[in-house]
Design a binder for these strands. Sequence first.
DNA 1: GGCTGAGTCCTGTACAGTGA
DNA 2: TCACTGTACAGGACTCAGCC
Length: 335
Amino acid sequence: MNYIILDLEWNQCPSGKKNENKDLKFEIIEIGAVKVDDNRQYVSEFHEFVSPTVYRALHKITKDMTKLTISELDKSDKFNEAATRFFDWCGSDGDYMFGTWGSMDLAELQNNCKYFGVDHKFEKPLVFYDIQKLYSLCFSDGKTRVSLETAIDEQKINKEIPFHTAVYDAIYTARVFEVIDFERVKRYTSVDTYCIPDNKEEEFFFNYGTYTKYISRGFPEREMIMKDSRVRSMHCCVCGRNVKRVIKWYSIGNQRMYCGVGFCEQHGYVKGKVKVRMTHDNLWYGIKILKLTDEEGAVQIRDRQIINREKRRERRHREMERRLKEAAESESETT
DNA sequence: GGCTGAGTCCTGTACAGTGA
DNA sequence: TCACTGTACAGGACTCAGCC
């Protein structure tokens, strides 16, 4: 299995959001990638600029960052040809896996392919390595995200080539990939949600040992997500058995996030989170993460639920007092 | 500058259930 | 019936860290 360490540079509407193409917010102008083998050793690299067709001027920030100009880019082929050569270079499907710094590149690659009609079938689910996340798992708390340059500095990797050129950033990413303790973190794959499951049978489920991730099919209405039995269900991340619900799902602040807690007789508390998202095709889907926790973790979730309730209660009381005061004032004015 | 994603926090409305 | 409570929902502001 090879790994394709990918980095893209893209451009956006130079005259702001009001004039942007809603189907293509970001147009790829450069594709850079490094192929590494099983041992994360360099095999080959791919680098092509792309002549843009949607945004015929570069956004100021893109220009400053990449130092590219439209006339330079116009010497290159259009996206279709560059992308086709890129996928040929990647190899046969199933022989490679993508690795990126951050999670945006693959979504933009797929969106550009869709927009320009590039005939390439992406794996479904599209599992990849977010090397930024792996880096955090190895050298930090697993949550903090640092820039590629910070990681290069921290690891004292030689900075002999500039940043913000797709292929050079891919080379740097590959170097970071090389220094991480891959055996320790290799099970922590990421999954791209540009294409979500079409139906119940295709729904994505991943078990990472201490936690599980489930990605639902799409729903036309947001409220259908938390009514779905598969989304609502809770099981133990270790034994897979259904757990007894001790705190039922509640929304925190808005309907984009739900929390709940279950209890497994054998393995203890399981905390659940459902994040609600919308696809490019305006379908709603849920990402459910179930994680083992301890009593303290369960108490924290319960406390947060209680605090939310109390805050609402206080607001009501304040509002009621305000109305009573207003009523009393208007009564005294009339008398 | 404009965007994503994750997360937090707040205000306000609506509706249903419950108990006095 | 009414007051109170719980829950869901709508929408916005904000932070932080990243991307181009």
